[in-house]
Design a protein around this nucleic acid. Structure first.
Length: 159
DNA sequence: GCCAACGTTGGC
DNA sequence: GCCAACGTTGGC
């Protein structure tokens, strides 16, 4: 059984459309520097899992599309590069501190699900992304929530 | 641009 | 180990 995740990205930095433009429509989900999210990336997120792609810090924060995990967690090498934006001297080749997965574009939602949309439906009410002050950029999603996004969007399960 | 919420750092 | 200070996130 696949698990499901919500991943945030600021569209001005890396949008769902940007993911579509990548070779194989696939990109490394690098740069995560939060321990809770790191643990998900390292231990729990597996090939075949579903991803809700969420645009944050923008005019209308929304779930905008579906993606899937195509590579299990592996060391985030951008932490090892002193010139990289998210360089972390505490991470080494021998003992990598930060991890990432590869994510592949699946399809956009016909209509993005805004926070208002999500709040309106009790099935979404418990989603972490709606909680005030929640800053976790990678968070688990319940199977029911994944299914509800599909139902709302009149999409067949792409996994 | 504001500001509340949060995670991390570092002095003690 | 506590906790104040700080930097960042992210909705509004």
């Amino acid at each position: 059984m696949p698990k499901y995740w919500l991943m945030k990205s600021e569209p001005s930095c890396f949008s769902f459309d940007d993911l579509k433009q990548m070779p194989n429509k696939t990109e490394q989900w690098d740069g995560v520097r939060n321990y809770q999210a790191r643990n998900f990336l390292r231990d729990e997120i597996k090939i075949g899992d579903g991803v809700l792609f969420y645009h944050s810090n923008c005019l209308e924060p929304s779930i905008v599309g579906l993606a899937k995990v195509v590579r299990d967690g592996y060391p985030d090498h951008t932490a090892l590069d002193p010139r990289a934006k998210h360089f972390d001297p505490k991470s080494t080749d021998d003992k990598p501190l930060w991890f990432m997965v590869d994510v592949q574009y699946l399809c956009p939602l016909p209509k993005p699900l805004s926070r208002d949309d999500l709040r309106r439906h009790p099935l979404f009410a418990g989603m972490g992304v709606l909680r005030k002050g929640n800053r976790l950029s990678v968070q688990p999603v319940l199977a029911e929530e994944w299914q509800a996004v599909l139902a709302f969007s009149e999409l067949a399960d792409p996994l």
